[in-house]
Design a protein around this nucleic acid. Structure first.
Length: 569
RNA sequence: GCGCCCGUAGCUCAGCUGGAUAGAGCGCAUGCCUCCGGAGCAUGAGGUCACAGGUUCGAAUCCUGUCGGGCGCACCA
């Protein structure tokens, strides 16, 4: 609307002024003194036009006629910025767009319906999920949602490493606990798993098969335990993720790559490509050819493939399944694998930056400024379930999302357990509930608002001219571009940031209308026209907060039912 | 030693891919408030954007180097 009108008017004027291909960047200044929209074109063109930026800006300001686009003033400022002020009606017109779009406000089509795969969590089935997996689950899930919202066809995938050495260690660990269960002396092997859950698995296994494998360390025995243990752990991980509101479209088993010949085909293809050689009895891939720091072993001298090989086979498979854009979410402790997997893929002719990676730092839980570990189940680490059962899924998801992936997350339990608005999750949820309660107070439903009217009465949105209102409306208008940017950067924290800012603006607006002090600023003020316009704004705030929270997989409650403060003092 | 990531307010962190006087929350200091929904609201103090160079109209942002922190450098995953 106003934005596009200004842009096209500027572009045609610049052509008249001798600019062949004008590129007009319009931004929303953070300082209200700088107007509602601003552009720096005069500065970027100063060099090619060989004129001082302010002079160019003056000419543009004088020749531009934008009254029809809702522009009330054009000013030249600073080194050559052009600042546009909009009429309050033009500013507020976005509210009708929001109300009209409803739950789809914020959707975009940047993806053009293309397919993209997000692979995340992909934990070894050797134990319960920990906090790092939790961060990955939250990140991957929301990145997928962001892509979905911006027009991509998204596939969520979980890769199970169910074929490697770690699984053997798990099987041996269960074997040891199983023997102990029947009074036999046995020890968890080097590199094995010591968590309580291993004993639970051994116990469950014993309940199923009895004493059948006591004293038996044959391959058959280990195989039985491996199959059983993986099944139990997979089920537990699935439960933990489902309760964390994370679901996948596909679970891809590493073992299937051996069964269906994918690994063998990949070896052959790499040989054919001419980057394979043998040394010291092992088979190597010349990954240095593609920027890796050193060549990598694909098949060890004992004949067993390294992890690297099925990983390459897996990613070739992704490409062949039609996913030409793939985002892998991984802990940054695995960043060393990135160049070598990409090198393997390039050797087979896949493009250089394939796949993309989102690497995240680790999670640390603190209370009173000190690290806490409260795991019973896994022994050495805190599990994801333990965390969200303590603080709730909404809080856990939000806290794991609110920092950019590059940064460490300090999970502050003092804040997480606080139910006041100091807790950012509740701050946003309260703001949403507050909007809903205004409608309850007005005796209507949020759905009773339509574009241009509320409760059946026509709304004059140009009445929303108070500073708090303009500020709030401006923010609401930025939601789609925030989603767009968050999707493009695979950065959910931008949405968190946005929601906190918007909730803050909504709260300021709301509190300014405290009936005891400024009844004329209250939403439900006596003036029926103001009241109607403000109800449209209330509805728009509610929609945006709801859409943002939903995008993050967090509840947008209509009422806040505070949990009883019944913890012993 | 080599590679990747990170150094922004007392603390935890944003900063829209180069724009205007660097922002938010917590904490701190004042002053309000039993209010359309709760420990809330308003205002304020607080910065050499690790350091040093460079690129240009303009740098927290890009380039080089230094210092500090994390992670990785297996015929483990």
């Amino acid at each position: 609307m106003a934005l596009e009108a200004i842009r096209s008017a500027l572009e045609s004027l610049l052509r008249e002024m001798g600019v062949a291909e004008p590129v007009v960047g319009l931004e929303r200044p953070r300082d209200p003194d700088h107007g509602d929209l601003a552009t720096n074109v005069a500065m970027t063109l100063a060099k090619s036009l060989k004129r001082p930026p302010r002079q160019i800006a003056e000419e543009i300001a004088n020749r531009l006629d934008l009254a029809a686009a809702g522009v009330s003033a054009v000013e030249v400022a600073g080194p050559g910025f052009l600042n546009f002020r909009l009429t309050s009606g033009a500013v507020a017109s976005v509210l009708d767009d929001i109300v009209r779009a409803g739950e789809s406000y914020g959707r975009g089509d940047a993806g053009g319906g293309e397919r993209v795969m997000v692979e995340f969590v992909s934990a070894n089935p050797t134990g319960p999920l920990h906090l790092g997996h939790g961060r990955q689950a939250a990140l991957g899930d929301v990145i997928a949602s962001l892509l979905d919202r911006t027009g991509w066809k998204v596939h969520r995938e979980y890769y199970y490493n169910d074929a490697g050495a770690q699984i053997e260690n798990l099987a041996r660990s269960v074997w040891a606990r199983y023997q102990e269960r029947f009074g036999r002396a046995a020890e968890v092997p080097e590199g094995g798993y010591h968590g309580a859950y291993v004993s639970d698995i051994a116990e469950a296994f014993a309940a199923e098969v009895g004493e059948r494998w006591v004293g038996d360390d044959s391959a058959e025995a280990l195989d039985a335990m491996r199959v059983f243990a993986v099944k139990v752990i997979r089920e537990e991980q699935d439960r933990d993720l489902a309760d964390f509101r994370v679901r996948f479209d596909e679970y891809y088993l590493e073992s299937s790559l051996y069964v269906d010949g994918g690994v063998e085909r990949t070896v052959q293809a790499l040989r054919d490509a001419g980057f394979v050689y043998e040394r010291d009895g092992a088979v190597w891939l010349r990954t240095t050819e593609f920027g890796d720091q050193k060549d990598r072993v694909m098949i060890r001298s004992n004949g067993a493939p390294t992890y690297f090989l099925p990983d390459v086979a897996y990613h070739v498979g992704k490409w062949n399944r039609g996913y030409h854009r793939v985002i892998n979410v991984q802990g940054s402790d695995h960043h060393g694998t990135v160049p070598r997997v990409r090198a393997g893929l390039q050797a087979l002719g896949l493009p250089e930056g394939y796949p993309e990676y989102v690497l995240h730092q680790m999670v640390r839980v603190e209370r009173d400024g000190r690290e806490v570990k409260f795991s019973k189940r896994a022994g050495s680490y805190t599990t994801l379930r333990e965390l969200y059962e303590l603080v709730g899924v909404d809080v856990a998801r939000y806290f794991l999302l609110m920092r950019k992936p590059d940064a460490h997350v300090v999970f502050d339990l003092d804040v997480a357990l606080d139910q006041s608005e100091k807790n950012p999750v509740y701050k946003v949820q309260y703001a949403h509930a507050r909007m809903c309660s205004i409608f309850a107070k007005a005796g209507m439903d949020p759905e009773d608002v339509s574009p241009g009217s509320a409760g059946g009465r026509d709304a004059d949105l140009s009445l929303l001219s108070h500073d708090h209102e303009r500020e709030l409306i401006k923010r609401l208008g930025e939601f789609p571009e925030t989603v767009e940017r968050a999707a493009a950067q695979a950065a959910p924290h931008l949405v968190c940031d946005y929601l906190e800012q918007t909730a803050g603006a909504a709260n300021s607006w709301y509190h300014a209308g405290n009936p005891a002090r400024n009844p004329e600023l209250a939403v439900l003020t006596d003036d029926p026209d103001l009241r109607t316009a403000r109800l449209v704004l209330t509805r728009a705030v509610q929609i945006v907060l709801n859409n943002g929270l939903t995008l993050l997989g967090i509840e947008a409650p209509r009422r806040m039912d505070r949990a009883e403060a019944d913890e012993p003092a």
